[in-house]
Amino acid sequence: MPPEPAKPSPLLEARALTKRFDNLLALDAVSLAVNRGTVTAILGPSGSGKSTLLRCLNFLVLPDSGEVLFDRTLINPRLDAALNAHRARVGMVFQQFNLFPHLLVWENLALAARLVRHLSAAAARDRAISLLARVGLAEKAFAHPLQLSGGQQQRAAIARALAVEPSVLLFDEPTSALDPELTGEVLAVMRQLAADHTTMVVVTHDVEFARQAASEVVFMDAGRVVESGPPARVIDAPTTDRARRFFKPSTVAER
């Protein structure tokens, strides 16, 4: 672990991000600060702007206005070199895994390491094999991605994101496309990453995971951050009506 800076400043920061899709205001001046070694869970109903916020952090969605800073440096997404360097530091895991089906599983990891981090073929292969072992897929290294189960594909996708040694990992609903009985193996890998102090931002519908693994919870609705703070406060003792309806639908109904 690198030594903590004397004055803690967010590793990844979003300032007043606004994004409009046609008539829909997906993000309304949303700010977010992600500290080193923490897990931030973004929760909220469908269409609240969670995924848009996450995708603005690595510019898969270009915000209409607002800023993204990495380690206090403003990122200009219109400069290709700066954009690619930013994305190499900010890894992403997708709902649909998006493994490259024309490559073997280990090649998915090695290609990224080779092209982005300029590793030699041998070094990239070694890194791929050891990362696959870390997510419990050592014996699947030479399989084709589509031969794996959904849970295995997602674990391979996490390993692929790790292959370029990012400083932050973004997860875009990583278990939403999985059978309920396959989510456990993916969540276990994510919990292990959290225990290793990997900085993570997780968009999820899994309130239980957020409660257990997150150090910070951000609750969004209609393109705004409604509440944020430690899970014990936001999830278990929300102060706004909107969050209460979302996290405690039964108690609200009783009133």
Binding site: N58, N84, G91, M92, F94, N98, F100, A112, V116
Partner: peptide, 16 residues
Amino acid sequence: LPRGQAEAARALGLSR
């Protein structure tokens, strides 16, 4: 091709 292929590649830091 599924959109996710290009997205995943760019998100890893690969150039166009």
